[in-house]
């Protein structure tokens, strides 16, 4: 069976390599964009507008295929086993760089070997916010208070390995403090608990916190990006506020099964560069607190490698891996 299958494929490949025109005609059919989260999940919010607008630019429909489950691993594994002809793409996020260290992926996929990085899409910093009843006004005071009362200040986050959980764990490690880690099923319920004052500390996305910060229900102590964010100009970065080197942002990008034709990648990148400057895309990214980030293909590959390394260390040092 594989032999029979391979035959037309081989002729096709041969034809493609002989006639460069064929490669230029990519895409010749609809493209499948696998989104490894449910509709409404963070990867979906970012990936869906890309499918619409990139599809328009490429002149072919991009079909969104939501494959949620196991913290993005179900969709990611599926994409790793899809044909590498450029007609299957995958939206990845920070989970892509964390899951390999939290779960046993042997025999499933390898984040480096199974995929070719295509393009970075966006990043969104996390915000360190506290309930106003907590008697701290900046990151240094929070660290001092946490050192005074180790394991007592309630820190609400979504589950182990989530973006909010990672941001907090990194903070604990780099600032040398320990909170009372309280986990929730999702980021929303965790925020409710902090606004209500049942817990005191949250690391969460801009979109979940900004409204609460502006109305005074939460106090923002710092943002997890390298630079301050425009929407909260008075809030320092956590890096400048007392934890040098701290950076924790969620990010989103597109990868393809390893060995995808470079011509396809180039075509996608060329159109994406335009799509990522379109106002509707920028506005819809804001829905997830994400800002467009453009990188060269090489930079994106290096970025993924760096993220993998960074979170490997955090997972190891924080002992978050479940036995």
């Amino acid at each position: 069976m594989p032999a029979i299958r391979a035959l037309p494929l081989a002729t096709l490949l041969l034809a493609a390599s002989l006639t460069p025109a064929a490669a230029q005609q990519y895409p010749a059919k609809p493209i499948r964009l696998i989104i490894p989260s449910a509709p409404g999940g963070s990867n979906d919010v970012v990936g869906r507008p890309i499918a619409t607008f990139l599809g328009e630019r490429l002149g072919r429909q991009i079909i969104v295929d939501n494959r949620a489950g196991a913290g993005t691993m179900i969709g990611t594994e599926l994409a790793s086993k899809a044909p590498n002809d450029g007609y299957t793409l995958l939206v990845v996020s920070i989970a892509f760089a964390v899951n390999p260290w939290l779960y046993d992926l042997r025999g499933r996929y390898d984040p480096i070997k199974s995929f070719t990085p295509v393009a970075m899409l966006a990043a969104g910093p996390n915000v360190l916010a506290v309930n106003p009843s907590l008697p701290v006004n900046n990151v240094k005071e929070l660290i001092a208070l946490a050192k005074e009362k180790p394991g007592k200040i309630g820190w609400a986050s979504a589950g182990v390995g989530s973006f909010q959980h990672l941001g907090g764990s990194l903070f604990e490690l780099q600032a040398g403090v320990k909170f009372l880690g309280v986990r929730f099923k999702g980021g929303g319920p965790a925020m409710i608990d902090v606004v209500a004052g049942h817990n005191q500390v949250a690391f969460s996305s801009l979109v979940q916190t900004t409204g609460q910060i502006q109305s005074g229900k939460l106090k923002a102590l710092g943002v997890g990006s390298k630079k301050r964010v425009p929407i909260l100009p008075d809030v320092p970065t956590i890096d400048e506020a007392g934890v040098p080197g701290y950076e924790a942002s969620n990010w989103w990008g597109i990868v393809a099964p390893a060995g995808v034709p470079q011509a396809a990648v180039d075509r996608i990148r060329k159109e994406l560069a335009v799509v990522l400057t379109a106002q509707p895309v920028i506005d819809q990214f804001a829905n997830e607190g994400a800002e467009v980030v453009q990188m060269s293909q090489g930079e994106f590959a290096d970025f993924i490698a760096a993220e993998l390394k960074k979170w490997q260390q955090v997972v190891k040092d924080s002992g978050m891996k479940a036995e």
């Binding site: 979109v207 900004t210 409204g211 502006q214 109305s215 229900k217 506005d283 804001a286 829905n287």
Partner: peptide
Amino acid sequence: LGALTIQGIQPGPQ
């Protein structure tokens, strides 16, 4: 809430 954000409205008590 996301739909509001898309519209440029910051969700929150205000």
